[in-house]
Design a protein around this nucleic acid. Structure first.
Length: 1017
RNA sequence: GGGCGGUUAGCUCAGCUGGUAGAGCGCUUCGUUUACACCGAAGAUGUCGGGGGUUCGAAUCCCUCACCGCCCA
């Protein structure tokens, strides 16, 4: 059998993958020694919509290295894979596809049909990313592949998992602890997807914008003395004004202003605080007045110092409004267009006026302050119109020439990270996690080291974020996701309804009162439970206290609140007619919203292990060991997993979080589709093989740095694959076979390389232990290429023709086995292939034993000797090359001087030196005319290159060497001459320095001797 | 504005707890000697961003400035 000249990655990868699958090589616990410690790792679940990008390749290569390494060491390993259902992203993809096929939209086909379509789509393309990950050699237990929507309604038959149960259970638990609550809050609203999103899903970007300046006239034409002063208190402007000047970047929100606020210390506006001013937009006859209030929020130095307060459309204003009891007037609908619903403008303005006078007007959600001509307009069209209206009326602040003041300036604007549209702060009912209540343990765990975040800089980021955590909006107005397990019921007892006679029975009058009292106006009850049956129980308990016969009303489920009112009314009417109490129903309806995807992925550690069931996996593999992920999801995912696992099961989800950088292109630019610099990992795999890509990513994974990846790097590492392939090919041609035990050879070369293997092993273990992936990779590269291929293989060539042939074959076979083993976690395919080609093995390499011998197998003498040999060969080669000796010429090697160790090294390794330095067997003699002078520790040599030696060139070469040596020696001498160095430095350092100096001095003496000889000629 | 990180060979980057610089790619010269030209041999290139400090000794620790990047307001 003879090997090809290169490794055929494409065909071998598929074959080897199939073989691993056949023996279930990746299964949890595979290759575990009896009673082994466990090592478990979670895959950061990629979006099920997604396809593999280079970040995934890194996310999975690094943990795969740790996993393979532990598996070979006999740990009981679980490498848990799975995918995330990715609410918005997936819904977006499916909707887009429906549109492309000109199918009816999701609202037309309805929720159930749409969700079914998403499941269908997931069935068709959900495996894409799994198959792509497999091509990288990711050795997860695919039989356990999890999905964050598993077990949810509509999930196809035959798919395991109960993620849905876990999610609902946690929701209900947190709801019952009141850690999850419902509230009407200002949230980030995505007008494209028409859903709330969390603040993490908002990207704030600086974009060119405008700042408009408008006059808000004082009510009743009042005037005041407006005075501006400079820093020293000198008056710079004094004028009589009948308005207050307001700057805004969003004029359309003026319609919803509830007040104008100034800083309490701002003397300019002190005269008008407490007065009313007019919003300069809207129909003249209903021009609204709003109060001028004080609050600490306005910055007197920014703009005019006066700020309009639109509590329902700005987060800062929201704070001011709630502090000062200013109504929150909503202006927009879910699409970001100006509202058309609610009361007429006239009615609305009237209510707002009463509010401005200080009257409590109650719930203002029905108040629509959008003037008729603006209703239905998109928010940006409305802006244009508002500006035109105000300017037309002469209420824009103008410059000296009378032109309206409009500043062009950069403004920070929020964008949806998925939709890319401008996010609108919106006042809506949403569900929140009161993160402040569960954040403590997550902070403590990192502070006390139960979970370690590497590198350290990310720990700080994590802590800072958690210390300033905001409530987490977890409801999403989407259809694809875990529907919130909350049902609402009508509030029949809190207000209005009374049992007049106190007889515990409901008479017709009371029934009528119940209906006419306006159920619509009332608040709702809600309960959370994992199913309708359970929640019905809760509602039955609630209504048990109602007068009869209502207390026996059947709890039924209806679509929504309107349906509930209708069903309830019909029930009452039927009862009224028939006096049959079974006609009475208590309808409840389920919250239509779904949970934020991250709520479910936050449960990834326990959800994938079968929780809430007390599974064997849960007992065995939780808490997990290492999580490898990107810094971009520390908040989204890592922090939330920490909080949720600690709250739900009282333990940290993992001991170590290794945060890797962002893979950039070779110029350091972020990869993005719009820039067109995205590198497809599979293209690289096709071209160079998975091993080369894995090795490249690994060698660039320096902690705390962003890897910069270009095809050149991958090519270089593909060459490395070829290198070890060919070293094996050479071995095979010389009858070397693997599979043997560690030999105990006699020849120095063989003893030396065994020590080098031990060094490489220890270095690899240390690097991986410390998550210094790049050091593991570069150390192995240097060892395999620099030591094994460059030197050992070359040394072995003459040995194969010597009495040491047999032990050299054994040693080389063993050394290569160690190379395959050590490289396997990083380059699994080529090493597995070589393993199978080179010996009869008990197991595949993936289940072979990781080397366990220590540095004690290093033979220091052999080490010294071989380093001397290498030095001599290099010096001879260098001298030859510099003097232009033809590469093929074989020179005599004359030993002019040698101490005992040098003599011994020479004697033991002469054939190697002869071959690699292209010299004849060494002989004693004297240097002389026409000879090159070369030295190595403790010995001097002369190499005759004929009578025609260029004395000048050789002198120059030696002088150059002398200068360098002498410079180095002087540096060391200066240090040693410094008494403070000798006093302060470590003993070892001083000794080492002395030794180095002695060596250099000796070298220098030899060079000078050679120079003297040259001159004598 | 606050925080974090970066600035080392022509390019892309290593350099862990201070002992005086390395790799890959590229470049120059030579080479097809019993694996490998996806190769081998030899070689050139660095006041380690500027300035200051601590130290016997600083790319490494501290301060400061400049520029670049990221995160959060």
């Amino acid at each position: 059998m003879s090997m090809d000249k290169t490794f055929d990655a494409a065909s071998a990868e598929a074959r080897i993958s199939a073989e691993w699958d056949r023996i279930n090589a990746f299964a949890a616990g595979a290759n575990a020694k009896p009673g082994a410690e466990t090592f478990s790792v979670l895959m950061p679940p990629p979006n099920v919509t997604g396809s593999l990008h280079i970040g995934h390749a890194l996310d999975n290569t690094l943990p795969d290295i740790l996993v393979r390494w532990h598996r070979m060491r006999g740990f009981d390993v679980l490498w848990q894979p799975g995918q995330d259902h990715a609410g918005i992203a997936t819904q977006m993809v499916v909707e887009r596809r429906m549109a492309e096929r000109q199918e009816p939209g999701r609202r037309e086909i309805g929720r159930d049909a749409f969700v079914e379509k998403v499941w269908q789509w997931k069935q068709e393309s959900g495996d894409t990313i799994v198959n792509q990950l497999r091509r990288l050699g990711t050795s997860c237990d695919w039989s356990r592949n999890a999905f964050t929507m598993s077990g949810a309604p509509g999930a196809p038959e035959g798919q395991g998992g109960n993620f849905h149960d876990a999610v609902l259970r946690v929701f209900v638990d947190l709801y019952n602890k009141a850690i999850i609550y419902r509230g009407k809050r200002l949230v980030n609203w995505d007008p494209h997807f028409e859903t709330a999103i969390s603040d993490l899903e908002v990207e704030n970007r600086e974009v060119p914008g405008h700042m408009w300046h408008f006059k808000y006239p004082l009510a009743g034409g009042e005037t005041y003395e407006y005075v501006e002063r400079d820093a020293d208190g000198n008056i710079t402007l004094r004028e009589t004004r009948d308005y207050i000047s307001i700057a805004t970047t969003r004029p359309e929100t003026m319609l919803g202003d509830g007040a104008v606020a100034v800083h309490p210390d701002d003397a300019r506006y002190a005269p008008i605080v407490g007065k009313l001013c007019e919003i300069p937009v809207g129909p003249k006859e209903h021009r609204r007045l709003i109060p001028i209030i004080t609050d600490d929020y306005p910055d007197p130095d920014f703009g005019s110092g006066a700020v309009k307060i639109t509590g329902a459309h700005d987060f800062n204003d929201y704070g001011v409004a709630t502090r000062n009891n200013i109504p929150l007037y909503a202006l927009m609908d879910t699409k970001g267009a100006m509202r058309e619903d609610g009361l007429s403008y006239a009615e609305s303005a009237a209510i707002a006026s009463r509010a401005a006078q200080g009257e409590d007007v109650g719930d203002v959600s029905n108040v629509n302050l959008v003037p008729d001509h603006l209703r239905g307009l998109d928010r940006f069209e409305a802006r244009t119109q508002v500006i035109a209206d105000i300017t037309g009326e002469g209420l824009a602040v103008t410059d000296a020439e009378g032109a309206p003041v409009v500043e062009n300036k950069k403004i920070m604007q929020p964008f949806g990270d998925r939709s890319g549209v401008v996010i609108e702060p919106m006042l809506t009912n949403q569900w929140f996690v009161d993160t402040a209540r569960i954040v403590g343990p997550a902070l403590d765990a990192v502070r006390d080291g139960r979970t370690q975040i590497l590198p350290d800089q990310h720990r700080k980021v994590y802590e800072h974020w958690l210390e300033n955590i905001e409530p987490w909006t977890i409801s999403r107005q989407l259809w694809w996701g875990h529907q919130i397990p909350v049902w609402y019921g009508l509030d029949l007892e809190s207000r209005g309804f009374t049992d007049d006679e106190g007889d515990g029975a409901l008479d017709e009058v009371e029934l009528f009162a119940l209906l006419s009292d306006g159920l619509v106006q009332r608040g709702d009850y809600h309960h959370a439970a994992a199913s309708f049956d359970e929640v019905a129980e809760r509602f039955r308990d609630d209504i048990a206290g109602l007068p009869q016969p209502l207390e026996i009303a059947r709890v039924i489920e209806v679509a929504d609140r309107d349906a509930a009112i209708e069903a309830f009314s019909r029930g009452l009417a039927d009862y009224n007619l028939s006096q049959d109490p079974t006609k009475l129903v208590y309808p409840v309806w389920r919250d239509p919203d779904v949970l934020d995807t991250w709520f479910s992925s936050g449960l990834w550690p326990i959800g994938t292990l079968g929780w809430p069931d007390a599974t064997a996996e849960m007992r065995k593999y939780f808490p997990t060991d290492v999580l490898v992920t990107g810094f971009d999801i520390i908040f989204f995912w890592v922090a939330r997993m920490m909080m949720m696992q600690l709250e739900v099961v009282g333990d940290v989800p993992f001991h170590t979080v290794y945060v890797h950088g962002l893979v950039r292109d070779e110029k350091g630019a972020k990869m993005s589709k719009s820039k067109g610099n995205v590198i497809d990992p599979l293209t690289l795999v096709d071209e160079y093989g998975a091993d080369a890509l894995r090795f490249t990513l690994t060698s660039m994974a320096a902690m705390g740095r962003d890897p910069k990846l270009g095809p050149k790097h991958v090519e270089a590492n593909r060459n490395f694959v070829t290198k070890i392939w060919n070293a094996t090919r050479f071995a095979e041609m010389n009858g070397v076979r693997g599979g043997g035990d560690r030999p105990n050879p006699r020849h120095t070369v063989n003893r030396w390389i065994i020590g080098e293997v031990a060094r490489a092993t220890a270095a690899t273990d240390e690097a991986l232990q410390g998550f210094r992936f790049n050091e593991a990779a570069s150390g192995l590269y240097a060892f395999v290429w620099g030591k094994v291929c460059d030197w050992y293989v070359e040394f072995a060539k003459p040995l194969f023709d010597s009495e040491h042939a047999e032990e050299t074959r054994a040693t080389m076979g063993w050394v290569l086995d160690q190379c395959y083993t050590l490289l396997h976690p990083i380059m699994p395919f080529v090493t597995e292939e070589l393993w199978s080609l080179t010996g009869d093995r008990d197991s595949m390499l993936i289940h072979a034993d990781w080397p366990e011998f220590g540095r004690d197998v290093i033979d220091e003498d052999a080490d010294r000797q071989m380093n001397w040999v290498i030095q001599l060969i290099e010096n001879i080669r260098s001298a030859r090359a510099q003097m232009g000796v033809p590469a093929g010429a074989r020179l005599d090697l004359i030993v002019t001087e040698a101490d005992a160790p040098a003599r011994a090294a020479l004697a033991a390794n002469a054939p190697l030196i002869e071959r690699l330095a292209r010299v004849n067997p060494p002989q004693e003699g004297k240097g002389g005319n026409g000879m090159l002078a070369v030295s190595a520790g403790g010995a001097s040599f002369a190499l005759p290159i004929g009578d025609v030696i260029d004395v000048a060139a050789e002198t120059a070469r030696l002088e150059k060497n002398a200068a360098k040596t002498s410079k180095d020696a002087d540096g060391l001498r200066k240090r040693l001459d410094n008494p403070r160095f000798v006093e302060n430095a470590d003993f070892e350092v001083i000794e080492e320095t002395r030794q180095k100096l002695a060596d250099l001095d000796q070298d220098l003496a030899r060079i000078h001797a050679a120079l003297a000889q040259l001159k004598a000629m």
